[in-house]
Amino acid sequence: MKKVMKRLVMFTPLFIFVVLGMFLFWGLNNDPTKLPSALLGKPMPKFELATLLNSDELKAEKDLVGNVSLLNVWATWCISCRVEHPYLMDIAKEGVHIFGVNYKDQRKEAVDWLGEFGNPYVFSLYDENGRLGLDLGVYGAPETYILDGQGVIQYKHVGVIDQRVWLEVLKPIVDQLKQQPVLAQGN
């Protein structure tokens, strides 16, 4: 018995090393700049903002309800947003509902940008001072939220949406959410 114990004690460093190694390996594949959203499963925060294209047209959180949709936070000062933009145009053409949040931007520059590169958004909210962005927990653009048909936040993606992200991450969630109301009605 004592011998077995001694053997075990001899192996403790190895054991510690393996556990530490597992932690470090996990850390390698874990991007610390991507934070989980604190708003998952919660409804859109309340807001009342004008749209980018029409400063008299006020929108509120209830205007995002109805369809499974993407809420894309963008700005003209955000270089990655320019990278992402053509792909948003593509998926908007496929019929994906995308709402925009024009985050801490100049109205004129943003309008010009949409004129130049195209407008993939159903509408963009003009969040000049970043108030809505703060309530959403935005910490850098681009960020994209998936809203279900009831306007509840179901997912947050930080960074550029490209084909890989859309097909592997976002689209499966969107498709699954689109199934849900049908199922609920069936029951």
Binding site: L35, A38, D135, G137
Partner: peptide, 8 residues
């Protein structure tokens, strides 16, 4: 802050 940005 926690409500918006999480416990991070």
């Amino acid at each position: 802050m926690v409500d918006r940005y999480g416990e991070f």
